[in-house]
Structure formats: structure tokens, C-alpha cells
């Protein structure tokens, strides 16, 4: 009897080791609609949720969604608490020094400054908030004139990609292949058109 239990335990361990290659933990913020947010059931939802699930299906990975505070989202990736970041993160040089990015799955959206209507003088971050225009638009619309777009739109970085650890080349290749396939068959475009009103699929 005891031997039997032991052997099933060993079996479980082995299958665990085999699976270890394929469970990928996806880190996101859960507070950046329409990219990612928590729905009424507290589940991660949004463009990136659907895209991430599609990528995992395409690459035959088992995926698990995890939410993490934005401020510590990169330190927790490099520390190994999850395997990828898929959180509306623009590919920038500074981030690229610390982590790697896959191909973009969303084009370089113009970022914009918003500011209270009077304070802005165009010197940058000091007086205003800079973020993706798609995220800011509903906020400005609902502020009743108190917040305005200020200054010129800026194209920040090279689009939005999935962040992976620099040492995780294999995973990055898998994800890249999956993204390329989903761009080719039109899935990415369909999802973009679904989640970003009035935007045409660019791929």
C-alpha cells in the first residue's frame, strides 16, 4: 500500500516536471482598460486577456493570469515571480535594457499628455500625465473640461509587446512565432477592432 502511494507520488512529481516547461504565468496589471482590467467577477479581461489566451493556444502553452502592481511589475518579472508581462507595456529603450520584448502586438499608439487646463507649459512630465491616448481618451471625455490634452502627441517606443526575461530566449521565440501566426490569420486585427472603437486593424 505504502509503495503504491509512493509510486503515484513519484508519478505526480514526474508529470509535474514535464509540465514545468509549459505552464507560463502571465503578469498583468488589471487596471488599464481596454488593454487589461478586472471584470465584474474579478477576472482579468480586456484586449490583452483575449489576445494572451489566443497566443497561449497557438503556442500550445498552459497559461495562468496573475495581477501585479504596476510599480513593481518589472522587478517581479526579473525575480521570476511570473514569466511574461502583458500589460500594455510600450517597448522602450530603457525597459529593453532590463528585459526583452517580443514583436509588438499593438502598434505604437500615440501617447498624449493630459493636464489641468491651465497648468501646462510644454516642458514635459513635470506638469502633466503621459499615457497611451486610448487609455486617456475616456478620462478626458468624462472630466467635463477640467482635463485637456496638452502639447503634441508623441510616438513613444515601438509599440506594445510582451515583456520576457532576457535569459528566456526560448519562450520569446515561441511567443514571437505565435504572434506572427495570429497576425497572419487576422486574429490580432479582429481583436483590436473589437476592443478599440474606431480603430482599424493595422496588421
Amino acid at each position: 500500500m505504502r509503495k503504491l502511494i509512493l509510486s503515484t507520488a513519484a508519478l505526480a512529481l514526474m508529470s509535474g516536471a514535464a509540465l514545468a516547461q509549459e505552464t507560463v504565468r502571465l503578469g498583468t496589471e488589471g487596471a488599464y482598460p481596454p488593454y487589461n482590467y478586472l471584470d465584474d467577477n474579478g477576472e482579468v479581461a480586456g484586449y490583452e486577456r483575449e489576445l494572451g489566451d489566443a497566443i497561449c493556444a497557438q503556442a500550445e502553452l498552459t497559461c495562468e493570469w496573475v495581477t501585479n502592481d504596476w510599480d513593481s511589475i518589472i522587478p517581479n518579472l526579473v525575480s521570476g515571480n511570473y514569466d511574461v508581462i502583458i500589460a500594455g507595456m510600450s517597448i522602450t529603450d530603457e525597459r529593453d535594457e532590463v528585459i526583452d520584448f517580443t514583436e509588438a502586438y499593438f502598434p505604437a499608439d500615440p501617447s498624449a499628455f493630459i493636464s489641468t487646463s491651465d497648468a501646462f507649459d510644454g516642458t514635459g512630465e513635470a506638469d502633466a500625465v503621459l499615457a497611451d491616448k486610448a487609455f486617456l481618451e475616456p478620462i478626458v471625455a468624462e472630466s467635463g473640461g477640467e482635463l485637456v490634452f496638452a502639447g503634441e502627441d508623441v510616438i513613444l517606443g515601438d509599440g506594445i509587446g510582451i515583456g520576457v526575461r532576457e535569459s528566456d530566449g526560448e519562450l520569446k521565440d515561441k511567443l514571437n512565432a505565435a504572434i506572427a501566426a495570429l497576425k497572419a490569420d487576422g486574429t490580432v486585427n479582429t481583436l483590436i477592432e473589437k476592443w478599440f472603437e474606431g480603430m482599424e486593424g493595422p496588421y
Binding site: 521570476g80 526575461r165 535569459s167
Partner: peptide, 13 residues
């Protein structure tokens, strides 16, 4: 430590 990555073997996670 590889660059900023902190990497231990899979069994140690």
C-alpha cells in the same frame, strides 16, 4: 544573476 535577471533552477522556484 544574469544582468538584472535572477535565475535559479526550476526545482528551486
Amino acid at each position: 544573476r544574469q544582468g538584472s535577471d535572477f535565475i535559479v533552477c526550476a526545482q528551486a522556484k
